[in-house]
């Protein structure tokens, strides 16, 4: 095990897969000479050359669509969005073309492509740069969606995504890029999509989260333990589609109380689906209504004071947890 950052973990995943498969290329704005807007691809241009690490103009629709066309032809492109927010100008290419070509061709054509980049709020960049479209993406059959929350997951899941024969949207987080964590060093370390992780065991309450909210959930679980002698279990979903329903349900059956936490906006957010799933399949195990903390339902605010209140923070999550016990 080596301790590296989430950013370095992504870099390792990309580098190893580019080395492993000559059909893998990385393309996006500023990925090559500039070394990535967040330095995720640092050193890769020097190592792999400009045929594999490709700077694009600011044309999300064209380079996303180009990558889909190339994937249809058997390549395995990794498309970096500087922010997932910018996928909105490429929506048609991702959600019509990448998602539907296999189906509409009766299974004749595969689209092995990865779209990746940060999808998070909390950095005071305002409404246009703070979207969390994992719910939109997961609403589209044909697309897979993952939200790794730790360096090990970032590496293991991105590698899985690149090897996957279907389109995968990898939603990262700029705030997590500097997070350090232990990551296995072997070249074939991968984490399958669709496998949630119980990151803290507990018996009184399940806090189910994804992305950066997992870390907030862990802090709250710690507080609950220290100050209230409440034992909270924390489940990191890791993958949104496919979804590890088994791990969710078995945690609920164990603790009988559920708090869902996400940075998604509430209306038709990911946790709306999870709440439905739990009441549908574990209703008899619930000792209390399912509770939920999501982003406050307003466009993402710029001001730090506003945005800190908007994103599920320690206090909001703790307060909601206390309502449950």
């Amino acid at each position: 095990m080596a301790t590296i950052t989430y950013r370095e973990a992504l870099n390792q995943a990309l580098s190893e897969e580019i080395e492993r498969d000559d059909k893998v290329v990385l393309m996006g704005e500023e990925v090559a000479q500039f070394k990535g807007s967040y330095k995720v691809s640092e050193g890769m241009l020097e190592k792999f050359g400009s045929d594999r690490i490709i700077d694009t103009p600011i044309s999300e629709a064209a380079f996303s669509g180009l990558a889909v066309g190339a994937a249809m032809m058997g390549m395995r492109p990794v498309v970096e969005f500087m922010f997932w927010s910018f996928c909105y100008v490429a929506f048609d290419q991702i959600f019509n073309n990448a998602a539907n070509v296999r189906y509409m061709s009766g299974g004749l054509i595969n689209v092995p492509i990865v779209f990746r980049g940060p999808a998070n709020g909390g950095t005071n960049v305002g409404a246009t740069h703070s979207h969390t479209p994992e719910n939109f993406a997961a609403n589209t059959p044909g697309i897979k969606v993952i939200c790794p929350a730790t360096p090990a997951d970032a590496k293991g899941m991105l590698k899985s995504a690149i090897r996957d024969n279907d389109p995968v949207c990898v939603m990262e987080n700029t705030i997590l890029y500097n997070l350090q964590g232990e990551v296995p060093e072997e070249n074939d370390f991968i984490i399958p999509l669709g496998k949630a992780n119980v990151v803290r065991e507990g018996s009184d309450l399940s806090i189910i989260a994804h992305g950066k909210s997992v870390h907030t959930a862990l802090e709250v679980a710690q507080t609950l333990d220290e100050t209230n002698k409440v034992s909270a279990e924390v489940v990191d979903l890791r993958s949104i589609r496919p979804l590890d329903t088994e791990t969710i349900l078995s945690s609920v059956r164990k603790t009988n109380r559920v708090l869902l936490v996400e940075e998604n906006k509430p209306f038709c957010g990911v946790d709306a689906q999870i709440a439905f799933l739990i009441q549908d399949q574990a209703f008899d195990y619930l000792d209390a209504p399912i509770k939920r903390v999501s982003a406050i339902d307003a466009p993402q605010a710029y001001s730090k004071s506003l945005e800190n209140a908007q994103i599920p923070n320690h206090d909001r999550v703790l307060r909601k947890a206390m309502e449950l016990i």
């Binding site: 061709s105 299974g107 090897r163 996957d164 024969n165 589609r241 979804l243």
Partner: peptide
């Protein structure tokens, strides 16, 4: 014909629920 993976269960790499 939605996902390559669900059409090729013998070569499935992921886990979890794909369809809701």
């Amino acid at each position: 014909d939605i996902y390559w993976e669900t059409d090729n269960p013998a070569n499935k790499t992921s886990q979890g629920t794909m369809f809701f």
